[in-house]
Structures are given as C-alpha cells and as structure tokens.
Simulated assay, not measured.
Amino acid sequence: MLPLIDCHQHLWDVTKFKLPWLPASGVLARSYVLDDYRQAIVGTGIDRSVYMEVDVAPEQQTAEAEHLIAICKSGTAPTVGAVISGRPGDEAAFKKYIAQFKDSPQIKGVRQVLHGDSTPAGFCLSPAYVKSVQLLGEMGLSFDLCLRPGDLADASQLADKCPDTRLILDHCGNADPKAWLSATRRGDQKPDHTVEPWKKEIAEIAKRKNTLCKISGIIARVTKEWSADDLAPIVNHCLDSFGPDRVIFGSDWPVCLLGAPLKAWTEALRQIVAARSEAEQKKLFSENAVKYYRL
C-alpha cells in the first residue's frame, strides 16, 4: 500500500473554539480531535497530514493558528503543517495578521471558504483581496480556493492576477457526484451543477501553471448507495486536466463522514487510480504534498 499524506485534515474542539457554521445536530455536531483522527486513519495508509482551517469565529483565528503550530511542533501528531484561516478582503488587517507567522515554518498557507452567503461570486477578485493573495506568494505561502461550482471562473481570474502565488483548488472544485448519476439513481437529490460547465472550468483553471487541484471532498456528497465508479469521472477529469505534477490528496475528514468513513474514501480513490502508473500514484498520494508544502 503506497503511503498517503492527507492535505486536508480538519480538527475541532468545541470546548475551545467557536465554529458558527457547525450544525446543532448530526454527525458533525461534536468535537473531532487528534485521537479521533488517529482512529480514523487506521488501515488507510495515511501517515502524515496537513491541517485545514475550520472557519472559526474571526476573533479566534490567531488562537487557532497558534494551537496548530503547537501541535506540529509537538512531534507526537501526524499533523506536520497547517493551512490557517484568514480574511484577505481587508488588506491592512490581513497584512498585520499574516505577518505574525512569517517565521513559522509550520504555516503553509491560508484559506477563506468562498461559498458562504456572505461571499458572492467575484468576492475574491476585489483589488484588496488580490493584493492580499499576492502577498501570500511573496511570503512563500499558498491560498486554498473553496468555491461553488458556478463560481469556478473566479479561480482562473485570480490565478491570472496572482501569478506568483500558488492557488490550490479544494474538493475538485466542489464537484457533486450526483451530477453524473441518472435521475433514477439520484432520486429527489438535485445536483448543484451540471457536468459540462464544471468540466470546462476545471480544464480552464488547469491551464494556469500556478494552480493545483486537491482530490478531496467529493465523498461527502455521495448518495446513500455509491461506488468508486460514481467518483471516477470527477477524479479522472481533474487528474487528466492538471496532470500528475499538480494534484494532491485530501481526506476532508471529518466532513467526509457525511458520505462515508475515511477508509472508504481512500479505498475508492486507490481503486480509481489503480490503472495509472506507480510514479503518478506516488505523486498524487504523497510526493506532490512534500514538494508543495515543503514537508
């Protein structure tokens, strides 16, 4: 089994941090801490991880970052780096905020979720936002893009405006596997987008050499009965568009539990890419993560 580096690990402790988006009930409505993650990765091949911010209350962003730096420094956790929260739209405040971490090698990048009600299409293209993302490139940090499928054109435009910043497209552009299913299979579950516009925008983003695609997230949106074949068109289009040198793996744990356990996701992905060369699989599973996150 080829080892995996998980480039999209979430952790949250509701006794320490406020997550305004967290539902009041359901599988996500509790803490998910390192001991839970250690149990979840048993049998998956995951041996290291990069934390992904969890959209804590804005006043807790610095505390979240410091918490993750401490975890990474401990040497006792699989977590070896962190992508932290940030609000690039406020240029002055963001510059002051991110400067705190210029000498922290554990910090690898920044993300702001861009598919919420307060972030309409084009939100990341304002002059202030663009300057903040350019600053990340100057600091050697990446920016994760988590966009609605209908807003994927924003990723191409931001990549053009920030050619020296590495942009990482989360969750295969938030592709919805139900878009590939027949009406019978998906029932009354309407997909968030149609197939061809998504495919076109993914291919367009991939033309920008400062972009990467994270093969993650799609498992959270499967129907109750699913198989690797339901995910294969998404994964293969992303791999073929971006090529073997610009793709990385992410678990999206514990959000993946909305669809299936983490082990089921890793098994499905291994099945999907089994026909690809071992060299390509190694790049997707771990080598690209080591390269781009400087692990």
Score class of each variant (00 low, 15 high):
residue 105 P to T: 11
residue 83 V to H: 12
residue 109 G to I: 13
residue 97 Y to H: 09
residue 74 S to K: 07
residue 75 G to I: 07
residue 81 G to K: 00
residue 96 K to S: 15
residue 102 K to Y: 10
residue 89 G to A: 01
residue 107 I to V: 14
residue 61 Q to K: 14
residue 93 A to P: 12
residue 57 A to I: 12
residue 103 D to F: 03
residue 67 H to S: 13
residue 74 S to G: 13
residue 81 G to T: 00
residue 83 V to I: 15
residue 93 A to C: 14
residue 106 Q to H: 11
residue 84 I to Y: 03
residue 105 P to C: 11
residue 77 A to H: 09
residue 64 E to D: 08
residue 66 E to T: 06
residue 107 I to D: 01
residue 59 E to L: 11
residue 86 G to N: 08
residue 61 Q to V: 06
residue 70 A to W: 04
residue 95 K to I: 12
residue 83 V to P: 08
residue 61 Q to H: 14
residue 100 Q to I: 00
residue 60 Q to S: 00
residue 60 Q to E: 08
residue 87 R to G: 11
residue 108 K to R: 13
residue 94 F to Q: 06
residue 82 A to H: 09
residue 70 A to N: 10
residue 62 T to K: 13
residue 88 P to T: 00
residue 94 F to I: 09
residue 71 I to D: 11
residue 66 E to I: 02
residue 79 T to Q: 08
residue 74 S to P: 11
residue 100 Q to F: 03
residue 72 C to N: 12
residue 63 A to P: 04
residue 77 A to C: 15
residue 80 V to I: 15
residue 96 K to P: 11
residue 64 E to R: 02
residue 72 C to K: 10
residue 66 E to F: 00
residue 68 L to R: 08
residue 103 D to R: 08
residue 102 K to L: 10
residue 93 A to Q: 13
residue 66 E to R: 05
residue 74 S to N: 12
residue 69 I to N: 00
residue 104 S to H: 09
residue 92 A to H: 15
residue 90 D to C: 10
residue 69 I to E: 04
residue 81 G to H: 04
residue 82 A to G: 05
residue 61 Q to N: 14
residue 97 Y to Q: 03
residue 94 F to L: 06
residue 56 V to E: 03
residue 80 V to K: 14
residue 74 S to T: 07
residue 75 G to T: 01
residue 73 K to G: 11
residue 64 E to H: 04
residue 94 F to T: 05
residue 60 Q to K: 04
residue 98 I to W: 07
residue 98 I to V: 14
residue 69 I to P: 01
residue 100 Q to T: 13
residue 75 G to C: 03
residue 97 Y to E: 03
residue 67 H to D: 12
residue 105 P to V: 08
residue 77 A to G: 10
residue 109 G to K: 09
residue 106 Q to G: 04
residue 76 T to R: 15
residue 79 T to Y: 05
residue 68 L to T: 03
residue 76 T to A: 14
residue 107 I to F: 01
residue 107 I to E: 04
residue 69 I to S: 04
residue 75 G to M: 05
residue 90 D to H: 11
residue 100 Q to Y: 03
residue 59 E to M: 04
residue 56 V to H: 02
residue 57 A to V: 12
residue 76 T to G: 12
residue 69 I to D: 03
residue 77 A to N: 08
residue 56 V to W: 02
residue 71 I to G: 09
residue 75 G to F: 02
residue 107 I to Y: 00
residue 94 F to W: 05
residue 60 Q to M: 01
residue 87 R to N: 15
residue 109 G to P: 08
residue 83 V to Y: 04
residue 59 E to D: 15
residue 88 P to Q: 08
residue 81 G to L: 04
residue 100 Q to W: 01
residue 68 L to V: 12
residue 73 K to P: 09
residue 104 S to F: 09
residue 91 E to N: 06
residue 71 I to R: 03
residue 104 S to P: 07
residue 75 G to V: 03
residue 103 D to I: 01
residue 95 K to D: 13
residue 57 A to R: 07
residue 99 A to G: 15
residue 66 E to W: 00
residue 98 I to S: 05
residue 67 H to Y: 14
residue 79 T to R: 02
residue 107 I to N: 00
residue 56 V to G: 02
residue 102 K to W: 01
residue 86 G to M: 04
residue 75 G to S: 06
residue 63 A to L: 10
residue 62 T to L: 14
residue 104 S to Q: 10
